[in-house]
């Protein structure tokens, strides 16, 4: 888990958040491009979860493993829930849920980096 990975994930999540926010602002329905954008993020998060678990086993750092992995699992779990919820809500706030979810992932990504570095208790 390097700075690039964490900030890359955060940047991608924020980009998707803006895309969803644009949908919300324009009162657009949950579109296919938005779905694909979330799907791409989800694939990245699954890769980060797998990669993170592997490097966790190899690192000599004093990382709180349970906390670290639980954050990564949370990040993987959020996008599917947001998509289901976002499609279910037919008003503009359906994509608002996606905005909330994506910003949460960005925050979690930065927190995970702190956990990895041991600067977060």
């Amino acid at each position: 888990m390097t700075d690039q990975v964490a900030y890359g994930v955060a940047a991608l999540a924020i980009a998707v958040a803006f895309f969803a926010g644009w949908h919300m602002y324009r009162r657009l329905e949950f579109s296919n491009p938005l779905f694909y954008a979330v799907a791409v993020l989800e694939v990245v998060l699954v890769v980060v979860l797998a990669g993170g678990s592997i490097v966790l086993g190899r690192t000599s750092r004093d990382v709180d493993g349970v906390l670290f992995v639980s954050y990564l699992v949370s990040m993987v779990a959020i996008p599917p829930a947001a998509v289901l919820w976002g499609i279910a809500e037919k008003s503009r706030w359906g994509t608002g849920v996606v905005v909330v979810a994506m910003l949460s992932i960005a925050v979690l990504a930065v927190r995970v980096l702190d956990i990895w570095k041991g600067t977060y208790a």
Binding site: A82, W85, S91, W93, V100
Partner: peptide, 11 residues
Amino acid sequence: SHGFGRALVAV
């Protein structure tokens, strides 16, 4: 739980 409430519930 609907409309804006959906986003609020998410937060």
